[in-house]
Simulated scan of single mutants.
Amino acid sequence: MADVIVIGDGPGGLSAALFLAKNGKSVQVFGQDETPMHYAMLYNYLGIPEIKGSDFQKIARDQVTKFGATLHDQEVTRVEPTDDGFVVTTADGSRHESKYVIIAEGKGLELAAQLNLPRSQSGVEVDRNGRTAIERLYVVGRSTRINRSQAIISAGEGAAAALDILSTEAGRDVHDFDTVK
């Protein structure tokens, strides 16, 4: 059983996966690298003067795997809560278990609809850490702000969800802040 399954491999999902994997959690990321980032040219991502979305995606995917997350080129078709966490089913019928799930599925909201998550005009209703009405289930990125999507906001939401999970597991506030050696 993975600690966390992340569904979606755009900035929100990959950011969450990075924070979690970097801090020792077993992370499985499901996505087919079909994010709208491949159509983007970023000039407004703080700290990066400019970068093509496809280049951003390649760097982010490499960074996440470097820290130990596993990327699966598979579509998730179902998420089911269980007593111990969740079972995620992929298009080929494979089932994967985890304690937590982070959904970063973009504006489609198919999985959120399956789970009957409350929605507003903006998207799935979550708290500021991405928590949903279902315990240990988070939604981040474009799914929560359909008409105001930005890569840097999605990445921040993924980081907030990851830090919330890390803090919950540790029983105290966790900060991911490294210093120069």
Rank of each mutant, 00 (worst) to 15 (best):
E50D: 04
E97I: 12
S122N: 12
V88K: 02
V126T: 12
L117C: 02
S54H: 09
S120D: 12
R61S: 01
N116T: 03
K66Q: 10
Q74H: 05
L46R: 04
D92S: 15
H96T: 10
R131S: 07
R131N: 07
P36I: 08
Q74I: 03
G47R: 00
E105W: 00
R95P: 00
L137N: 08
F86D: 13
K99S: 11
P81V: 02
N129G: 11
Y39W: 13
K58T: 15
V87L: 03
D73C: 06
V101Y: 13
F67E: 00
Q74G: 01
E105I: 00
S98W: 13
A69W: 01
R131T: 05
V140E: 03
R78T: 13
D127E: 06
R128A: 09
R78L: 14
G141H: 13
A60M: 06
Q32E: 12
Q63T: 09
G68M: 01
D83F: 13
G130M: 06
K107Q: 11
G24Y: 08
D55R: 09
K25A: 15
V126M: 12
S143Y: 08
Y39P: 07
P118C: 07
R95S: 07
V64E: 00
T70E: 13
V140Y: 11
M37D: 10
F56E: 00
N116W: 05
T82D: 10
R145Y: 07
S122H: 15
M41K: 12
A112Y: 01
Q63P: 03
D84Y: 09
T65A: 11
N147G: 10
S94R: 11
A91H: 02
Y39N: 13
D33R: 14
I48R: 00
Q57C: 04
L109G: 02
V27S: 05
Y43I: 09
A69M: 04
G53M: 02
K58A: 11
T90N: 14
G47Q: 02
S120H: 07
G108Q: 08
H96N: 13
T89G: 06
L137K: 08
S120Y: 07
G93D: 04
H38D: 12
F30K: 03
R145V: 11
M37N: 11
M41S: 12
I134A: 06
D83K: 15
F86L: 04
T70M: 13
R142Y: 03
G123L: 00
V79Q: 05
G47L: 02
E80R: 01
